[in-house]
Amino acid sequence: MLAVSDLKIHYRTLAGAVKALDGVSFSVADGEIMGLAGESGCGKSTLGKALIRLEERMQYVGGQVVLDDKVLPIADDRAMNPYRFSEVSIVPQYAMSALNPTRRIGRMIDELLDARGLKGSTLRPELERRLAILGLTPDVLGMYPIELSGGMKQRVVMVLSTLLDPSLLIADEVTSALDVASQKKVAGALVEFRDRGYVKSMIVVTHDLAILAQVADSIMIMYAGKLAEKAPTRTIVEAPAHPYTRLLLGSLPEVGIRFEEQRLPGIKGRPPSLLSPPTGCRFRDRCPLAFGKCVEEPPFIEIAPGHQVACWKADAHAQG
C-alpha cells in the first residue's frame, strides 16, 4: 500500500523554482493498477520519478511517502538505495536505451544483482521463467542490446525491473514509443505481472487514456502540478466529475465518427506557468464552469467511495 501526503517537488531553474508537484496526496491500494494521466508538463512524470529517484535538478520541498508502513527517504539518494529495485522499481520511458550497449544482457543483470548483494546465478531460473512468460527465450541473455528489437528490449526491461517482486512499480510512458500491437502486448504484460503477484501495486504514467482504460483499476488526473480527480476507471470514463477530466475525454477520438465532418474539440488555452502558479483553482481560466468561488483553492475531497475531486462544482455535477 502506497500513501503519499502533501508531496512537493520543485525544479531548480535559472528563472526560479518550477513547482512541478505542489502538494499532492493520494494512495494506491495493494493489487491496484493506478493510471496517472494529464497534459505534458502537468507533473505526472515528476511524480513517477520522485517516488524512486530524484534527478539532480529536482528538489524535495516537503511531504511524505509511505510504502507498506515504511517511510521512504526519497530526499536522501543514498538512504533510498536499499528500497530501489526491491521495494520500488521503475520501467523507464527510455526502455529502448536502458541497457548498457557494451555488455551482454545476462552479464549486465548478474553484475547488477551482485552489486546489490544478491546472487545472480540463484535468480537465473526465475529470470528465464519470467522472460518466457513474455515470449522471450533464454538466448536473449547471451545477446547484446543491439541484437534485440525495440519491443524485445522493452520486455527485457520489464522483467528485470520486476525481478525482485517490488511492492510498487512505476511504468513511465511505457507504451508511448510502441506501435499499437506492441502497446497491447505491453499493457497485457503489466496486468499479468500484477495478477501473478510479481508486483503488488502499479502506477502507470501516460498521456494515453485509451491504454489506461484497458489496464488501470483507477485513474488519477493531474493538472498543473496538482491533482484534479481520482476515481475507478469506469467512473472516470463514464461519469467524470472534474470539468478538466471531461474536456480531456472529450478531446479523444471515438469509433465511428469521421473527423473530416466533425472537428475534434480541444481544450482552449494553455496550462498556467508553474514558475508562479495562480492562486485558487488552476484550471479556472480555461474552465467553462468557473464562477466566483474558484479564486479559492478547491480541496481534493471524496464525493463518492473511491472518487476524489478537486472542484467546487463537482458535487452538483456528479449528481446532475
Binding site: 529495485f85 522499481s89 536502458a98
Partner: peptide
C-alpha cells in the same frame, strides 16, 4: 547522464558499477 546509467541508478546500483560501465 546516459539512459543506461540512469536506469542502473534507479535500480539502486552502487556508483562503482555505474562508473565502471
Amino acid at each position: 547522464e546516459s539512459d543506461y546509467a540512469n536506469y542502473l541508478m534507479a535500480l539502486g546500483a552502487p556508483q562503482r558499477l555505474v562508473r565502471k560501465y
